[in-house]
Simulated assay, not measured.
Amino acid sequence: MTATQSPPRLIDDGELAGHSVVANNTMNRERVLTGVNSYARELGFDPAEFLDGCGPAPSWLDLCSGEGLALRAAAQRLPQAVITGVDLVGPLRTPALPDGLELVAADLGRWAPVRRYDLITCVHGLHYIGDRLALLERAASWLTDTGRLVAHFDPTTLRRPDGTDASRPVLAALRAAGFDYSARHHRLSLRGGRSIELPFTYLGADPDAGPNYTGQSAVASYYRQAV
Rank of each mutant, 00 (worst) to 15 (best):
H127D: 11
G125H: 09
R9F: 13
V104A: 09
D87S: 09
G125N: 08
S6Y: 06
A73E: 15
L101H: 05
L171H: 03
D206K: 14
A177V: 05
S65L: 06
R191C: 14
D62E: 15
R132V: 04
T121F: 06
F153N: 01
L136S: 00
L71I: 07
W111L: 12
A176I: 07
T157M: 13
H185F: 10
D13M: 12
A166H: 00
A139P: 00
D107G: 02
R41Q: 10
G14F: 12
L143Q: 04
R148I: 09
S6Q: 15
A218G: 11
D145G: 14
P7C: 14
V36N: 08
P8L: 15
Q225D: 03
W142H: 14
R41P: 00
G14S: 11
L136V: 05
H127K: 05
L143D: 04
L10G: 06
R159Q: 12
T121R: 06
Q76F: 05
S38L: 08
A151P: 00
Y202I: 01
A151I: 11
P56M: 14
D154F: 08
D107M: 10
S20V: 11
W142I: 06
G125E: 03
D52V: 00
H127G: 06
T94N: 14
A218Q: 03
A81R: 03
D99T: 10
L135F: 06
A134C: 08
P207D: 15
R41K: 09
S141E: 09
G35D: 01
D131K: 07
R138K: 11
Y181D: 11
N212V: 08
Q225W: 00
E42Q: 10
Y39W: 08
M1P: 01
L61W: 01
E137C: 03
S221H: 00
T34V: 07
L51F: 09
A220Y: 00
P211N: 11
E102L: 12
C54I: 08
D62M: 08
A177C: 04
S65D: 03
G204M: 10
M27R: 12
I129W: 10
A75N: 02
G18F: 12
G204P: 02
H152D: 05
E49S: 03
S20E: 14
Y39S: 06
A75D: 02
D12T: 03
V86K: 12
A106H: 06
L133F: 14
L135R: 02
A218W: 04
D165Q: 12
Q76G: 13
V219Y: 01
W60L: 13
P91A: 13
